[in-house]
Design a protein around this nucleic acid. Structure first.
Lengths: 212, 212
DNA sequence: GTCTATAAGCAGATAGAC
DNA sequence: GTCTATCTGCTTATAGAC
C-alpha cells in the first residue's frame, strides 16, 4: 500500500472518529511514521486530501442515485437505495459534521459540493416523480410538492448523522442508519401507497445492518 | 456600553457573518481597540464567550416555546410561533453552522445544548399533541407518529439556515426564513386540517419579513 | 519517494504595572 | 477595569539532502 493511500485512509479514519479538524498534516505524518515533507510530496496541502476524499464520496453517490432512479422502482429497491445512501454517508460521516467549515476554507471544494447537491436534489425529485408515475406514491398538493418532498429527504439525509453526533453519541454505528431511513420514510409515508410503504418498511427491517 | 457587552456584541456579529471560527480573542480585542488582557478580564476564555451567547439563545427559545404551547393554538399563533423561532435562529445563526465543532471543544456547552434539545423535542411533541386535541391536526399513523413529526420539525429548524449557508448564499437575510417555515409546513401539511393549514399559510405570508 | 530541519505565522492565554 | 509585553504551543508549508 502506497504512502499516498495510507495518508488518505488514516485521514478518513481520524476525521470520521474525531471530526474534520482532527486530521492535521502533522498528526497524520506522525501517526503514519512518515515525515511532513513526504506528506507534502503526495498532496499540495491539507485541503487537497479532503478534496480527494470528497471526490470518492461524490462518485459513489452519483452512481448510486443513477442506478436506482431506473424505473420501475419496487418497494425493496426503494428501501435498499435509502439504506445504501445512508451507509455511504456513514462511511464519509466526517464530511457532514464539519461541512460548513470545510467549504469556507476551500472554494474549489465548495463548488464541487454545490454541484453535487443541486444535481442530487433534482435526482431525488426525479425519483419521486417516477414513484408517482408507477402509482406507488400520490402527488403532494401544491405547485412544488414533489420538489419540497425531495428537499426534505435531502435535509434528513444530510443531517441525520450530524444529529446523532450532536446528540452526544460517542460512536455512530452502521446500525444507527436504519433509524434515519425510518425518519425519512415517515416524511414520505403520507404520500406512499400503503402496500408499497408496508413492503418498503419490511425490506428496511430485513436489510438493516444489525447492532454490534 | 460596557466592554463586556461590546465583546459579546462583536463576537456575535463576527461569528454570524463569518462563521464560528472567525471570532478569535485576538481579533475581537483588536477590532474593539482593547487589549487581550482586558478581554481576559471579562471572560475566562474563548469558550466562555460562546457559552454566554448560547445562554441568551437558550433563554429566548425556552420562553418562546412555553408561551406558544399554551392551548388552544390558533392558526395565526401557530404560524407566528414558527416565524419567531426561525427569526431567533437567524439572530444566532453562527451557532448552527459550527455546532458540532463548538460542542466538541466545550463539554459544558455540549451538556447545556443537549438539555435544550431534549426539552425542545418533547415540547414540540407537546404542541403537536395539542393540535390533535384541538382538532387542527390528524394523528399520524404508527406508534411514535407525533414524536417523529416533532423530530422532523426540529431537524428542519436546526438545519435550514445551515442549508442556506452551505448552498453558497453570501448573506442570509431574515426574509429567507419564510421559506424555511414553509418547508416545515410542507412536512406537517398532510396531517393538518385543510382550513387550519390555509389559514396558517395566509398568516405566514402576511407576517413574513419582506426582502431588502 | 522519502528524509531532516526549520521557517513563518497565528492562536489562546498570562503576569504584572497602572 | 484596563493596559503592555510576552510566553507557549500549535499549525501549515517549504528547502534541500539522500
Amino acid at each position: 500500500m502506497s504512502n499516498r493511500d495510507r495518508i488518505l485512509e488514516l485521514a478518513l479514519r481520524l476525521m470520521n472518529e474525531e471530526g474534520a479538524g482532527a486530521a492535521g498534516t502533522t498528526r497524520i505524518a506522525e501517526e503514519l511514521g512518515i515525515s511532513p515533507g513526504n506528506l507534502y510530496y503526495h498532496f499540495k496541502n491539507r485541503e487537497e486530501i479532503v478534496r480527494v476524499l470528497f471526490d470518492a464520496l461524490d462518485a459513489e453517490f452519483r452512481s448510486l442515485l443513477i442506478e436506482d432512479a431506473d424505473p420501475p422502482i419496487s418497494a425493496s429497491r426503494f428501501a435498499a437505495f435509502y439504506l445504501r445512501s445512508f451507509d455511504l454517508a456513514w462511511r464519509y460521516r466526517f464530511f457532514f459534521g464539519g461541512l460548513l467549515g470545510l467549504l469556507r476554507r476551500d472554494e474549489e471544494l465548495a463548488a464541487r459540493y454545490r454541484a453535487l447537491q443541486d444535481w442530487a436534489i433534482d435526482e431525488l425529485e426525479g425519483i419521486a416523480t417516477q414513484l408517482v408515475k408507477d402509482g406507488s406514491m400520490a402527488r403532494p398538493r401544491g405547485r412544488d410538492g414533489l420538489r419540497s418532498v425531495a428537499l426534505s429527504t435531502w435535509l434528513i439525509w444530510m443531517n441525520w448523522i450530524r444529529f446523532l453526533q450532536i446528540s452526544g453519541r460517542e460512536t455512530i454505528e452502521p446500525s444507527d442508519m436504519a433509524a434515519g431511513v425510518s425518519q425519512l420514510f415517515d416524511v414520505l409515508a403520507p404520500y406512499l401507497d400503503p402496500a408499497f410503504e408496508k413492503s418498503a418498511r419490511r425490506a428496511l427491517a430485513r436489510e438493516s445492518p444489525k447492532r454490534g
